[in-house]
Design a protein around this nucleic acid. Structure first.
Length: 639
RNA sequence: GCUGGUGUAGCACAGUCGGUAGUGCAGUUGAUUCGUAAUCAACAGGUCGAAAGUUCGAGUCUUUUCACCAGCUCCA
C-alpha cells in the first residue's frame, strides 16, 4: 500500500500499524515519537493504517503528541488511585492545556499528603512500563465489564449507537477510553500532581461534587521544572498581592466581602482610566449621564433582568409602597432616558454612556479581588440606532476597542461571537425570529469587518448575541474585557421609538457595549500585565524627586514645580532624612518610573540625575530636557 | 453556592508534647546630612480571625462561625 508519512509517500506492505509502517519505510523512530496523526486525527502509534492514509508522526512539540502523553499520564494517576484507594469510583480524565486532570468520586479527601503518596505510586507504575493495550467490547459486555464503576456505565450508555466502545489496559488497570495513548507508561519521566479541587459530574452544579486531581507531565525533568518555575512566577503577578503591596486597594470585613475600596494611589489610576475613556467617548459622539444605583423592581421586571437574574441581585428593599433593588445593570435606566424625549431618524444614533456603579450578588466562591467583586463600575454605553446604522455603529465600537487596546498595549486577545443555545428557552428571551435576525445581523457585521472570531453557543446575553473580547491573564481563567451586544429585545420591551423618513414610528435597535469592561477588572488586568510597573502616563506617582540632603530640598521642589507646569503633576519629593540609597530602594519598590537624584552638582548646574525604574542610571540631564522627555513619554503613552 | 485548604503584629513568617507569644522588615523617637536598591540605637506594636467547649491551663485539641485561597458552577 501507499501511505504518506510526514509528507513523503512510501510504498509498504499491507496491514501495518502506523509505527510499523514508518519503520518499514525506513524512518528512524526515536522515543520522541509519541503518537500518530492519521488523516488529521490523533491516534495511537499502534493504530492500523491503510492504503492512501496520510500520517504525521507526533512528538511532544505537537499539540496532539503532548495531549496523548498527558492523557496517558492521567491513566497512570487513575491506576495509582485505584491501587491505594480501591473504593474510589472513576469518572473522566482528559489532557488539558499544560497538563491533565482526572475526576474521582471518593470518600477519601485527596489532601496534599495523599497527592504525595499518589505520586510515589505513579512513579512505580511508570517504572513497571506496562504496555497500553486497546480493545473494544460490545455495549452489553462493556457495561458488564465496568459494572463496579457507575460513572463509566453511565458514559457507556451515553455513547451513541454504532460508536466503538474502547478500553485501554495497562498492566492491572483498565479504563474506558477513546484514546489515543502512548505505547507504554515508561515514557512519562517527569510529572507532578499540582492540585486537588472539586468539580461537578458533567459540569453541572446540581450533580455530585467530585474530586479533581490536576497534574502535569513532561518527557524531560528540565521542562517540568521550568514549567513549575513559571507557575511560581505567575503567582507574583496576582493583582491582589500587588494591589496590597502598592497600596492600590484594600478589602475590609466590616465593609463587606466583594466590596473592594480604592486607596489614593489606586483611585489615581482609576481616575486616569475614567478620564481616558470618557474623553475618548465624547470625541466619538457619546453623551454621558448619571443615574442612581437603585431602581424599582418594576424597572427590572420590564427589562427582563428580574426574571433572569433575580437570584444574583441583592435582595429587594421595601420603601413606602414600593420595592427597590440595588441595580445590577444600567440598561433599563438608559432605556428610560432615551424614552424621555422624542427621537427622529435624523438624530440617531443616540449614544448614552455612563461610568456606572453596579451591585451583583455574586456567588461567594467567585469573588476575586477587583477582578470580580459584588460592587463594580462599568464603562457602559447604549447606542440607539436604526437597523441601517447597526453596521457602522458596530464598526465604530470595534474601532474604539482596538484603538484603546493599542494605547494600553493589549495584543493578546481572542474574539468570540457569543450565541444563544436555541434549546435553552429559559435562559434566553424566547423569540426565534428575533434571535435569527440578531445573530445573522451580527455575524454579517463581523464578517464584513473582516474580524477573526470563534462562535460559542450558549454564551449570549438573554436579550441578544454579542461580540466578546477575551484576554487570558498570567494567572487564572480567561475573562471578557470588552463586549458589544446587539439587542432587538429590550427596545421593544420599553416601547422605545423613533420617527422614520415616512413619519412612522419605528423601534430602534440597541448596541450595549463596554470598552474597558468594568474599570475594576480592567485595572486588575493592567496590574497583572505590568506587575504594577505602570507606564508613565498611568503611574500613580510618575516621578520621585530625591534630594541628597536638606540643602537640596528647595531645588527639588522647584523641579517638582517645573514638572507640574508641564503637566507632569504626580510628582513627590522625598525630603525625609534618609540616605539616598534608601530612598532609591523605596521608590524602586514602589515602581515609580523615574527617580531624580538632586545633589549639590544638580543644584549648581540646573540639572537632574535621572534614574529609570527599568533601565537604572541614565546620567545627568538639563531639567528642561528631562521635562520634555517625560512630556513626550506621557503623550505617546510609551510603555 | 459546592469540594478541599489556610487564618499568629501593617507586611513576610517561626512557635516542638497543651504550660500564658517571637524573628525580620515596616512604624515611632533620638542621633546621623549622606551621590544611585536597606545608617545606627532605643522604643512601641498581638483578645493568635470570632464564639463556644474540653482542661488546673488552649495559638496548639473539639464544635460552630467569619474571612481568605484553589478549582467547579455562574458572570445580564
Amino acid at each position: 500500500m501507499k501511505i504518506t508519512i510526514n509528507e513523503i509517500v512510501y510504498e509498504v506492505a499491507d496491514g501495518l500499524s502506523a509505527y510499523d509502517a514508518a519503520k518499514a519505510a525506513g524512518i528512524a523512530l526515536s522515543r520522541d515519537i509519541l503518537a500518530a496523526e492519521i488523516n488529521g486525527k490523533t491516534s495511537d502509534l499502534t493504530s492500523p493504517v491503510k492504503d492512501g492514509d496520510v500520517v504525521k508522526l507526533l512528538t511532544f512539540e505537537d499539540e496532539g503528541g503532548a495531549h496523548t502523553f498527558r492523557h496517558t499520564a492521567s491513566h497512570v494517576l487513575a491506576a495509582a488511585v485505584k491501587r491505594l484507594y480501591p473504593e474510589t469510583k472513576l469518572t473522566i480524565g482528559p489532557a488539558i492545556e499544560n497538563g491533565f486532570y482526572y475526576d474521582f468520586d471518593s470518600e477519601t479527601a485527596f489532601t496534599a499528603d495523599v497527592l504525595e503518596k499518589l505520586e510515589a505510586e505513579m512513579k512505580k507504575i511508570v517504572k513497571e512500563n506496562a504496555k497500553m493495550e486497546r480493545f473494544t467490547l460490545p455495549r452489553a459486555e462493556a457495561v458488564e465489564f465496568m459494572k463496579n464503576e457507575p460513572y463509566k456505565v453511565e458514559l457507556i450508555n451515553d455513547l451513541p449507537e454504532g460508536e466503538e466502545i474502547s478500553f485501554y489496559r495497562m498492566g492491572d488497570f483498565t479504563d474506558l477510553c477513546a484514546g489515543p495513548h502512548l505505547f507504554s507508561t515508561g515514557a512519562i519521566k517527569a510529572f507532578k500532581l499540582t492540585a486537588c479541587n472539586s468539580a461537578y459530574w458533567h459540569g453541572d452544579s446540581k450533580n455530585k461534587a467530585l474530586q479533581r486531581i490536576y497534574g502535569t507531565a513532561f518527557p524531560k525533568k528540565e521542562d517540568l521544572d521550568a514549567y513549575l518555575q513559571k507557575l511560581e512566577e505567575a503567582k507574583l503577578r496576582d493583582h491582589r498581592k500587588i494591589g496590597k503591596d502598592l497600596q492600590l486597594f484594600m478589602t475590609d470585613d466590616l465593609v463587606g466581602r466583594g466590596m473592594p475600596m480604592f486607596l489614593p494611589k489606586g483611585y489615581t489610576l482609576w481616575r486616569i482610566l475614567e478620564n481616558y475613556i470618557r474623553d475618548k467617548e465624547i470625541a466619538s459622539g457619546y453623551q454621558h449621564v448619571l443615574t442612581p444605583c437603585v431602581g424599582t423592581v418594576e424597572l427590572y421586571k420590564t427589562s427582563g433582568h428580574w426574571e433572569h437574574y433575580q437570584n444574583n441581585m441583592f435582595p429587594a428593599m421595601n420603601v413606602d409602597e414600593e420595592t427597590y433593588v440595588l441595580r445590577p445593570m444600567n440598561c433599563p435606566h438608559h432605556m428610560r432616558i432615551y424614552a424621555n424625549s422624542r427621537h427622529s431618524y435624523r438624530n440617531l444614533p443616540v449614544r448614552i454612556g455612563e461610568i456606572a456603579h453596579d451591585f451583583r450578588y455574586e456567588a461567594s466562591g467567585t469573588l476575586k479581588g477587583i477582578e470580580r467583586g459584588r460592587h463594580f463600575c462599568q464603562n457602559d454605553a447604549h447606542l440607539f440606532v436604526t437597523p441601517e446604522q447597526i453596521k457602522d455603529e458596530f464598526a465604530k465600537v470595534v474601532d474604539l476597542i482596538f484603538t484603546t487596546y493599542k494605547d494600553f498595549g493589549i495584543t493578546d486577545y481572542r474574539m468570540v461571537l457569543s450565541l444563544r443555545d436555541p434549546a435553552d428557552k429559559v435562559k434566553y428571551h424566547d423569540d426565534d425570529e428575533m434571535w435569527n435576525t440578531a445573530e445573522n445581523a451580527l455575524r454579517d457585521v463581523l464578517n464584513s469587518l473582516g474580524l477573526k472570531y470563534t462562535e460559542e453557543i450558549g454564551e449570549a446575553a438573554f436579550y441578544g448575541p454579542k461580540l466578546d473580547v477575551n484576554v487570558k491573564p498570567a494567572v487564572g481563567a480567561e475573562y471578557t474585557l470588552s463586549t458589544c451586544q446587539l439587542d432587538f429585545c429590550l427596545p421593544a420591551k420599553f416601547n422605545l421609538t423613533y420617527i422614520d423618513k415616512e413619519g412612522k414610528e419605528r423601534t430602534p435597535v440597541v448596541l450595549h457595549r463596554a470598552i474597558l469592561g468594568s474599570l475594576d477588572r480592567f485595572m486588575a488586568y493592567l496590574i497583572e500585565e505590568t506587575m504594577g510597573a505602570f507606564p508613565l502616563w498611568l503611574s500613580p506617582v510618575q516621578v520621585e524627586v530625591l534630594p541628597i540632603s536638606d540643602d537640596h530640598v528647595e531645588y527639588a521642589n522647584k523641579v517638582k514645580d517645573a514638572l507640574a507646569a508641564a503637566g507632569i503633576n504626580r510628582v513627590e519629593v522625598d525630603d525625609r532624612n534618609e540616605k539616598i540609597g534608601y530612598k532609591i530602594r523605596e521608590a524602586q519598590l514602589e515602581k515609580v518610573p523615574y527617580m531624580l537624584i538632586i545633589g549639590a552638582k544638580e543644584v549648581e548646574e540646573g540639572t537632574v540625575s535621572v534614574r529609570s525604574r527599568r533601565d537604572g542610571e541614565l546620567g545627568s540631564m538639563k531639567l528642561d530636557e528631562f521635562v520634555a522627555k517625560a512630556v513626550k513619554e506621557v503623550e505617546t503613552k510609551e510603555r
